[in-house]
Computed example of a mutant assay.
Amino acid sequence: MAASRPLSELTWLRVGGPADRLLLPASEAELAAELAAMDPTDAVFVLGVGSNVIVRDGGIRGTVIRLGRGFNSIEIKGDLVVAGAAALDAHVARKAAAAGLDLTFLRTIPGAIGGAVRMNAGCYGSYVADHFVSARALTRQGDSVTLSASDLNFRYRHSDLPDGWVLTEATFRAPEGGDPDVLERKMANQIAKRDATQPTKDRSAGSTFRNPSGASSTGRADDVHDLKAWKLIEDADMKGAILGGAQMSTKHANFLINTGTATAAHLEALGELVRKRVFDSSGITLDWEIMRVGEPEQ
């Protein structure tokens, strides 16, 4: 257990104040014991790898949990892929591909499996829910439970995981994809397309806002863009908009980036300004995809 560690060190956007307590469990047994020993009124937040979150400048009151190497295993069991919650989405995609199984949609999704399940992550027309079999989690009291798809009630970029519960492992059923080399080339093409269209070299947290249509990119030439968040942002003349050290990317309008001097307040304020301008322009209210947690700086 560590105290008052700046969470900016652990987030992709490199912003955020300290946690009251930071828990870095080495195993599920250690995590279960820590949860059981906590005051049940203490707040618990699972940070994951910090890829899809703005931690506000005042930090987080309560205990922040960051899963480590004891939670990043990946096993292939027939057509099932069993991955620890801290296993990176990209690593899971590649390990599956090496076994001839197609979870290639995970290759370009930033973050780890726990966050992917919680947010029902998707890309190229496929979602976690399409392949999900079950997950294991620890409750706020440290009890181990198995969750089905109906328990999680997957929806677009959302699930019903109770507050304070910690996902530790997930199992997916993957369709056979044939030759591993073919799957690897498919993923290489996805990476090349992503790098050509998204600011992968900048400090970002992935897509900032959910698509109002509730649809991920299909990757097809006939993909409809009318209600994609990036198109609404461009139409509102907010592509490239700057506030303090925060900017809406000039490469992809739905990516909020830290140019190097942004605070969490800059990032959140720019996001809210974008939401206002999009509403004024189109009458559509964009919903945040990036989680915003913690307290503003006093």
Results as ranks from 00 to 15, higher is better:
residue 57 D to N: 06
residue 57 D to Y: 02
residue 57 D to P: 07
residue 58 G to R: 08
residue 58 G to V: 11
residue 58 G to E: 09
residue 58 G to S: 11
residue 59 G to P: 08
residue 59 G to E: 04
residue 60 I to T: 10
residue 60 I to R: 06
residue 60 I to F: 02
residue 61 R to N: 10
residue 61 R to M: 01
residue 62 G to E: 06
residue 62 G to Y: 03
residue 64 V to I: 12
residue 64 V to D: 04
residue 65 I to F: 01
residue 65 I to Q: 04
residue 65 I to E: 02
residue 65 I to R: 01
residue 66 R to S: 13
residue 67 L to D: 11
residue 68 G to F: 00
residue 68 G to Y: 00
residue 68 G to H: 03
residue 68 G to P: 05
residue 68 G to W: 00
residue 69 R to F: 00
residue 69 R to G: 14
residue 69 R to H: 05
residue 70 G to T: 10
residue 70 G to W: 05
residue 70 G to D: 05
residue 71 F to M: 08
residue 72 N to C: 14
residue 72 N to H: 06
residue 72 N to I: 10
residue 72 N to R: 12
residue 73 S to L: 09
residue 73 S to A: 15
residue 73 S to T: 15
residue 73 S to W: 01
residue 74 I to D: 11
residue 74 I to T: 13
residue 74 I to Y: 01
residue 74 I to P: 07
residue 75 E to R: 15
residue 75 E to N: 11
residue 75 E to A: 15
residue 75 E to W: 01
residue 76 I to M: 04
residue 76 I to P: 02
residue 76 I to V: 15
residue 76 I to W: 00
residue 77 K to P: 00
residue 78 G to H: 05
residue 78 G to N: 09
residue 78 G to Q: 08
residue 79 D to I: 07
residue 79 D to S: 14
residue 80 L to Q: 14
residue 80 L to A: 15
residue 81 V to Q: 03
residue 81 V to G: 06
residue 81 V to N: 07
residue 82 V to H: 03
residue 82 V to W: 00
residue 82 V to E: 07
residue 83 A to Q: 05
residue 83 A to N: 04
residue 83 A to F: 01
residue 83 A to H: 06
residue 84 G to T: 12
residue 85 A to S: 15
residue 85 A to H: 02
residue 85 A to G: 09
residue 85 A to W: 00
residue 85 A to V: 12
residue 85 A to R: 02
residue 85 A to N: 04
residue 86 A to Q: 10
residue 86 A to G: 07
residue 86 A to H: 06
residue 86 A to D: 06
residue 86 A to I: 05
residue 86 A to E: 07
residue 86 A to P: 02
residue 86 A to S: 13
residue 87 A to G: 05
residue 87 A to E: 08
residue 88 L to I: 08
residue 88 L to F: 02
residue 89 D to A: 15
residue 89 D to W: 00
residue 90 A to N: 12
residue 90 A to K: 13
residue 90 A to S: 15
residue 91 H to C: 10
residue 91 H to P: 00
residue 91 H to N: 12
residue 91 H to I: 07
residue 92 V to G: 10
residue 92 V to E: 04
residue 92 V to I: 07
residue 93 A to C: 10
residue 93 A to N: 04
residue 93 A to K: 04
residue 93 A to T: 11
residue 94 R to F: 01
residue 94 R to Y: 03
residue 94 R to K: 13
residue 94 R to S: 12
residue 94 R to A: 12
residue 94 R to M: 09
residue 95 K to W: 01
residue 95 K to A: 11
residue 96 A to S: 12
residue 97 A to K: 04
residue 97 A to L: 03
residue 98 A to L: 08
residue 98 A to N: 09
residue 99 A to P: 02
residue 100 G to T: 11
residue 100 G to N: 09
residue 100 G to C: 08
residue 101 L to E: 12
residue 101 L to D: 11
residue 102 D to N: 12
residue 102 D to K: 06
residue 103 L to Q: 09
residue 103 L to T: 11
residue 103 L to H: 06
residue 103 L to I: 10
residue 104 T to G: 15
residue 104 T to P: 01
